[in-house]
Every structure is written in C-alpha cells, then in structure tokens.
Lab assay of single mutants.
Amino acid sequence: MDVFMKGLSKAKEGVVAAAEKTKQGVAEAAGKTKEGVLYVGSKTKEGVVHGVATVAEKTKEQVTNVGGAVVTGVTAVAQKTVEGAGSIAAATGFVKKDQLGKNEEGAPQEGILEDMPVDPDNEAYEMPSEEGYQDYEPEA
C-alpha cells in the first residue's frame, strides 16, 4: 500500500510541476504579447503594419512553449490582441483601416495563427491545408 501511495504522490508532483510550467509559459506569452502591443503603439504610420505582424510573430513563438489545451486559448487571445492593436492603430490615425491585415508588401496577414497546427491532446499534428499553395516548377 505504501508503494501505491508513494507512486500516487510522485504522479501528483509531476502534474503540479507540469501545471506550473504551463502557467509560466502562458505568463511569458502574455508578456511578449504586451511587449508587441507597446511596440505597435510606438510606431509611426509606416511601421504600424509591420508592428502588428511582430506582435503576432512574438506571440506565436511563445505559444510553442505552452502545451496542451492552453495553446488553443493563448492563440485565440493573441489573435484578438493583434486585431485590437490594429483597431487602436486605425482609431489613433497611425494607419488607414484599409491597410490593416496586410503586410508591407500588401499581402493579407489573416491566418497567421489560424494555420498553425495545434492539437490540445498532444496526440497528432496535421499540416495546414494546401489550398493556398501553388506547385513550383523550376525553369529549365
């Protein structure tokens, strides 16, 4: 019985440690998101679009440190934060509304985080759909 109880105690310690790591990862992701939003706020009209992409990228980098179902929630929060940063930029006159959601080359930025393969159960990952990809044929 002692062996059984000791095993359960060790398992509990492992769960607590994993929860603490997840909590730490979420806190880091939130900190990076805040950094990115402050970065966007300090940019001029020309830099705002690039700044919004930076927020998304920093958040995406930190999301990889967070495991399990938390990833889905962090990704949703990050996307809403990026959308909010863009709205703030438009409201303050840093950028025109028609410039939001495009990178410096004018290509749409939507789907940055949505296409990231995420499995809350950590069982399997699927690649994003290939609808947006084109076949590449090298020139002879």
Rank of each mutant, 00 (worst) to 15 (best):
M1H: 00
V82T: 06
A124H: 07
E105I: 01
V40Q: 00
K97H: 09
T33F: 13
D98M: 05
Q24L: 12
T44Y: 12
T22F: 09
D119Q: 14
E46H: 06
A17Q: 10
S42K: 14
Q62D: 01
T44N: 01
T92G: 09
P128E: 07
P128R: 10
E57F: 09
K80T: 04
Q62V: 04
G86E: 13
V26L: 12
E46F: 06
M5T: 01
T72K: 06
T72C: 13
E20C: 10
P108T: 14
K34M: 04
A56D: 00
G36S: 14
K102S: 01
V71F: 07
V3E: 00
F94T: 03
V71M: 14
A85Y: 14
V77W: 15
S87K: 04
A91K: 04
V49S: 09
P117Q: 13
F94N: 04
E20V: 03
V95L: 13
Q62E: 03
V63L: 08
Y136H: 10
E123N: 08
P128M: 14
K32A: 13
V15G: 00
A89M: 09
V52P: 01
G31N: 12
G14S: 14
P138L: 06
P117F: 09
P138F: 07
N103S: 08
E126N: 11
G25Q: 15
L113V: 15
K34I: 06
G51K: 07
V95S: 10
T33N: 00
E123F: 12
P120Y: 06
E20W: 06
K6V: 02
V66H: 03
T72A: 14
V55Y: 14
A124R: 08
Q79C: 09
L113W: 12
S129H: 06
G67S: 07
V3Y: 02
G111Q: 13
G51N: 06
A140N: 13
K12V: 12
A11D: 01
D119R: 02
G67V: 11
L38N: 04
E131S: 12
G14E: 13
Y125V: 13
A53T: 04
F4C: 01
K45G: 03
V26Q: 00
N103D: 13
V95G: 08
T33I: 03
M5S: 03
A19S: 02
A29W: 14
Q24T: 14
F94S: 06
T81C: 09
E28Q: 07
G132W: 13
T59R: 01
D115P: 03
P128F: 06
E20R: 02
G7F: 05
K23L: 14
G25K: 15
G68L: 13
A11F: 13
A30D: 00
V77T: 03
A90L: 14
D115Q: 08
K60D: 01
P128Y: 03
A27E: 02
G25Y: 15
K96T: 13
N103K: 07
G93I: 11
E131P: 10
E83I: 14
E13R: 09
E46W: 04
D98V: 03
E130P: 11
A19C: 05
V16A: 04
V55S: 01
K96G: 13
E28G: 03
E105R: 13
A76M: 05
K43L: 14
S42C: 07
A78Y: 15
E13Y: 13
Q62P: 02
L113F: 09
E28W: 05
G14H: 15
G73S: 14
T81S: 07
K102G: 03
K96Y: 14
V52T: 01
G41L: 02
V16I: 15
T44Q: 01
G31P: 00
V15M: 14
F4Y: 06
E130Y: 07
E57W: 06
G51W: 15
A90T: 14
K58E: 01
K6Q: 03
V95W: 14
T44A: 07
V26T: 01
N122H: 05
D119A: 12
T72R: 13
I88K: 03
L100Q: 08
D135Y: 09
G84V: 14
Y136D: 02
P120T: 09
D115W: 03
V3F: 03
Q99F: 13
V70Q: 01
T22C: 08
Y136E: 03
A56P: 01
V3G: 01
G106D: 03
K21A: 11
D2N: 15
Q99E: 07
E126I: 14
T33M: 15
A85D: 02
V55R: 01
I88Q: 03
T22I: 14
G31D: 07
T59V: 11
T92N: 06
G47V: 11
D2C: 03
D2H: 08
S87H: 11
E28K: 07
Y125H: 14
G73N: 09
T92R: 06
M127C: 08
A56G: 05
A17M: 14
A140Q: 06
Q134I: 08
V37I: 07
K12D: 00
I112F: 04
V95H: 11
T33W: 15
T33R: 01
N122D: 09
V49H: 14
T72N: 14
V66K: 02
V63N: 01
P120N: 07
E57G: 04
A11W: 15
D135W: 07
V49T: 09
A29L: 07
G73H: 13
G47N: 12
V55C: 07
G86P: 05
Q134Y: 07
N103Y: 05
V40G: 01
K45N: 01
P128D: 11
M1I: 00
G106K: 08
P120Q: 11
V95R: 08
T59L: 04
V74H: 01
K58D: 01
D121M: 10
K80A: 12
K6A: 06
G67T: 11
E131H: 07
T59S: 05
G41I: 05
K58W: 11
G47Q: 14
T72L: 12
Y133W: 06
Q109L: 05
K12W: 11
K97V: 15
M116I: 09
G84W: 09
S42N: 14
Q134L: 13
K32I: 10
E61V: 07
K10Y: 05
V40F: 10
G84L: 14
E130Q: 08
V15I: 12
I88N: 02
L113Q: 13
F94V: 03
Y125R: 06
A107K: 10
K58F: 11
K58V: 10
A27R: 08
M127R: 05
K23T: 04
G132T: 14
E35Y: 13
K21W: 09
E105Y: 12
G67W: 09
P138W: 11
E114V: 13
A19K: 02
E126T: 06
G84Y: 13
Q24V: 06
A53H: 10
G86S: 13
M5R: 10
E139P: 05
M1N: 00
A89W: 15
V66I: 15
G84I: 13
E61A: 06
Q79K: 11
A107C: 05
G111K: 12
E57S: 05
A107D: 09
G25H: 15
S42I: 13
A107L: 12
S129F: 13
G93A: 10
A11M: 15
V118Y: 10
A78V: 12
T81M: 10
T64F: 13
V15E: 00
V49Q: 10
Y133C: 11
G132M: 13
A124I: 02
E114A: 03
T44L: 09
K97D: 15
E35A: 05
E123C: 13
P108H: 10
T81K: 02
M127Y: 12
S42T: 04
E57D: 07
N122W: 06
E57H: 04
V77M: 13
E57C: 04
E104V: 06
K34C: 07
K23Q: 05
K43N: 02
K23P: 00
H50R: 14
Q79F: 05
A56R: 09
K12S: 04
Q62H: 05
G25F: 15
D119M: 09
M127K: 13
I112Y: 05
G84E: 07
G51A: 12
G31S: 14
K32H: 09
G7V: 13
K96E: 11
N65G: 11
E110N: 08
T54P: 01
